[in-house]
């Protein structure tokens, strides 16, 4: 995994090593293993970067996404992962819900859509 982000994303470079995951299940696990303060900190750091991240990433064909850009993508996906915690619950996980450990996430990885075909 390449954790060095392009220069324009220097502000979120410190997040890269801990918060970048290709899989939904891994992102959800990271969310549930974090404190609300950690999640809020990640969200607040990412939010002002989202528009420029999506513009930057759209400059590549999916199949040709370079490694450093993939890390930006994983961080942006993680922003969406934690968004409900911050915007709707102010709790790490959805309250009054079916137990997360019994709700199996089998979704395809982001990398699946960055291969040709």
């Amino acid at each position: 995994m390449e954790y060095t982000l392009p220069d324009q994303f220097n502000e979120i470079q410190p997040l890269a090593e801990e918060w970048a995951f290709a899989d939904e299940a891994a992102r959800n696990h990271k969310r549930r293993a974090s404190s609300m303060a950690e999640i809020q900190g990640f969200y607040d750091a990412m939010r002002p970067q989202m528009d420029s991240a999506m513009t930057y990433l759209n400059g590549f064909k999916l199949a040709d996404t370079p490694e450093e850009a993939k890390t930006v993508l994983y961080l942006a996906l993680m922003f969406m992962e934690v968004s409900t915690a911050v915007e709707m619950y102010q709790e790490v996980d959805v309250p009054e819900s079916f137990p997360a450990e019994r709700y199996n996430i089998l979704s395809p990885s982001a990398d699946h859509f960055m291969t040709a075909g």
Partner: peptide, 24 residues
């Protein structure tokens, strides 16, 4: 493109949380 992937992630996460509410 990646922008669409990120956009779709918003729906995926919200729907997942909503279904866990449904099952509760």
């Amino acid at each position: 493109n990646a922008g669409e992937m990120i956009s779709q992630e918003n729906t995926r996460v919200l729907l997942r949380d909503i279904v866990r509410e449904d099952l509760n």
